[in-house]
Nucleic acid binder design. Structure first.
Lengths: 103, 103
DNA sequence: ACTGTATGTAAGCAATTGCTTACGCGTTGT
DNA sequence: ACAACGCGTAAGCAATTGCTTACATACAGT
């Protein structure tokens, strides 16, 4: 599953938001939600698979943290879309300037 | 369905990429994919609902175009995440500077 | 060694998703 | 008026998702 799909689920986005404050353990994360701990564990698995999170074992805990590179990946995509959109607009206004009356 | 979920599906992202070149009709869009036309129609519906696309009826055609504001929404979210992440790092290094030996 | 704590994994299930084919409805051209 | 076109909607279906409870594993504290 890629980054976009991973961020598609609201709960997973909420997890990312939580981790914006910094690293935290699976249990701490789960405590913020009303769904079961295993459900969170599965979401965390998806996020790690997608490269959004990084896990670090620390004793019996597992500390999750954001991998900002993955968010950058999404940002890059958006950026590239905006660029293409902008140049499409350019072409459009160019066409309107020159060929106004055509069809 | 919100923008994130809408962009979660690969086909829908591909549609957005297509529309980066400018407005186009449902049929034109569908012709780029191997899935059925109704399937594309449904994806278009989702994207419009999510505010990603705008439709304009033109005779018997329907012209779809990007609503860049919605992509900006996603970008804002990412941005805000990055800000929080950055300040979390600040707090961390601050803590390390001052209280090094604690814990 | 033994108990409790932190966590992932397995199995099962209802709801949702992404697709298909069949159909309906307005628009265009003759 | 009528045929063909462009498109959305309905119905149905298999696959996937998001959850649950129950279980397994591994470390920590006594």
């Amino acid at each position: 599953m890629d980054v976009f799909e991973a961020l598609g689920a609201p709960h997973r986005r909420a997890i990312v938001e939580l981790l914006g404050d910094g690293e935290s353990t699976a249990g701490q994360i789960a405590s913020h939600f009303s769904i079961s701990r295993p459900a969170i564990s599965q979401h965390l698995g998806v996020l790690v698979d997608a490269g959004v999170l990084h896990v670090r074992a620390a004793g019996r805990e597992r500390r999750y943290s954001l991998r900002t590179e993955s968010l950058a990946e999404v940002e890059d995509w958006l950026e590239s879309q905006r660029v293409r959109w902008a140049s499409a607009l350019d072409r459009l206004s160019e066409a309107m300037d020159s060929g106004e009356g055509e069809r």
